[in-house]
Design a protein around this nucleic acid. Sequence first.
DNA 1: ACCGTTCAGTGGCCC
DNA 2: ACTGAACGGT
Length: 760
Amino acid sequence: MQNLLHNLNPEQLAAVTLPAQPALILAGAGSGKTRVLTTRIAWLIQTGQVSPAGILAVTFTNKAAKEMMTRLSAMMPINTRGMWIGTFHGLCNRLLRAHYRDAALPQAFQILDTQDQLSMIKRLLKANNIDDEKYPPRNLMYFINGAKDNGLRAHDVEAFDDYNRKMVELYALYDQQCQREGVVDFAELLLRTYELLLRNQPLREHYQARFRHILVDEFQDTNNLQYNWLKLMAGTQGAVFAVGDDDQSIYAFRGANVGNMSAFEREFKVENLIKLEQNYRSHGHILDTANTLIANNTKRLGKNLHTDAGHGEPVRIYEATSDLQEAQWIIEEAKSLIAEGSARNEIAILYRSNAQSRVIEHALFSANIPYRVYGGQRFFERAEIKHAIAYLQLMDNPHNDSAFLRVVNFPTRGIGARSLEQLQDAAKQYGISLYAAVPYVTGKAGTSLGAFIKLVEGMRFETLQLPLKEMVDVVINSSGLIAHYQNEKEGADRIENLEQLVSAASLFVSEEGFGHDAPAGLGPQSEASAGTPLVVGDGIEIIDADVPLVTVMSPLSAFLSHASLEAGDNQAQAGQDALQLMTVHSAKGLEFDAVFITGLEEGLFPHENSQKEEGGVEEERRLMYVAITRARRRLYISFSQTRMLHGQTRYNMKSRFFDEMPESSLKWLSPKVQQHHWFASPKAEWDNAFGESTNKIAQNMGKQAMGWRIGESVAHAKFGEGVIVNIEGSGSSARAHINFGRHGMKLLDLSIAKLDKLSA
DNA sequence: ACCGTTCAGTGGCCC
DNA sequence: ACTGAACGGT
């Protein structure tokens, strides 16, 4: 015990040992939040306050859940069985599997990922002759997900105009279609579980009594449905231990509601609010920079990080002339860091948007520096894997139309658009799935469709008694996928991936505790042993979901859930000692010795779209705060005078965030170049080192009128600082397009507008 | 079935 | 500038 708690600072210790009451822990970046969460769990169990079965710990990512598990088992000889640590979606999946009847789902229900959901919506629109120009599938998807995230079914959504009435109607149709097919989307997992608990009192009371301690990670990222889900799960007795940081709330765009933090404090009558402000990650200058910046936000719960680590080095700021040159500079700096002994994977290059990575990657590639880009395509999202999965889905639940359509003619087997049209008509007419509608199609189309059904049935029959690994192996071969890719020029990688899917299945079986030789395709292996059936009140029997998945679903169903819920690593190749490239969003939760934050320009960071959004700039500022606090020892921030975006050169102003950072912690590496000065100096001076594209810019910048040049910085009484982006006309009738950053782009008459030359 | 062309859209992304 | 989807021709 002493062991468990020693080395905690007073605030951490206080948080870990709080009584069983609602608590809100404001955990700043690098303040040991995961440590507090895991130690709290260990402490609760070791002191005998709760059994492992009484713990529910919720995270947003599988990675975080795994991390918590790992750290817990390092802390105590833990009996992981019975403890519920997982993502919202993973936990909901588990509950719905155990209580599928009460939730009105088929036992083998399947989970749609975003791709599947979109394709399903497209099909729905087509089947109902809806103009997809007027109702873009993507919009409908956002509409549906948005409604679900707020706990609203179609009949709950109020529509005030015809357009929205139609959207609501389509939402209802969509849900019907999902129900017919036996599939649920991500939001549905949450909503269905919420409704299940809301309506089923015995079940609700059972879980409320069971989970005496509910711990939530990244609480600031919860959406409204998740918040209400937690409320329902907690009941009146559950001790919810919410850990979060309002300053790191960067996911409003996908429904996260920071307001849940204060709502939690209010509605749960939180008496225990603890701030973890001691930072163990970053040096002082870095922390000061973060603190000063974030102080510009108005809506904060209030928190100020401090460190014992000393000031360390100042934050280095660099002004580049072009995005290309910015990349060159990064590489030079990175090289010298490496030369000084830094590990490559301790250096991160962050950017606001993915489009920025291209230039940097190109430069790294040319310089022969290994790097790794996060956020690429994930394993289970690859086309060939989705195809193999679709065959498996059809074998487990033939009514999944998305899976059917994905592979009915892949590899090609002569089933074209005409045949499918006939099939879809039949399915619509009888209100059944495509699979079930095949017998109603006659003629040649019927024959080839029948052959496809035979293929799937054949694979199912053949693998009925086989373990999962072998089932997958049979599927990738008998389906013709392997053969198909063998004939393809670039098919080798895909075949390799398919083979990796077989290994993944094997690994899954051993990790999830399914017997290696247990048949994959049969239902639950041991229905009788499913937990301890509880009989409550009216004789309703509850089988607690606290059982290995194997007892509530077949290995195949479990593997398919796994494929949907854990799409795999979000990073490209596993080149170990490589520079780390990623967006600021995906850097959240990570830390590095040295960090480059690039593209600090108005319009890019803060992003231009954020200006129009309510609270948008504050979210951008939090994003910058997250970026800064990733760095341990050394931080670089750069911006560029020109940048290629969407095929044209843009002249951006430096980000307003520079005005919000403490000058005393910054060190400007480049002399503050006066932009009108560029042309006074020989072009070659800044051209020789960095590539040819500066040439074009220079030529373009040569254009001038009324003593003003493109690219020049100006000051305007009303709009403040700006950059001349273009000049049209000449002489006294010339007009200039000027980018005033936060005031937007203005077209000013050069003979009228009062402009001052800006000397920076 | 497969190809080349055209065209819109282009912010971040967990499950 | 680049991508992915949609379209139309062979």
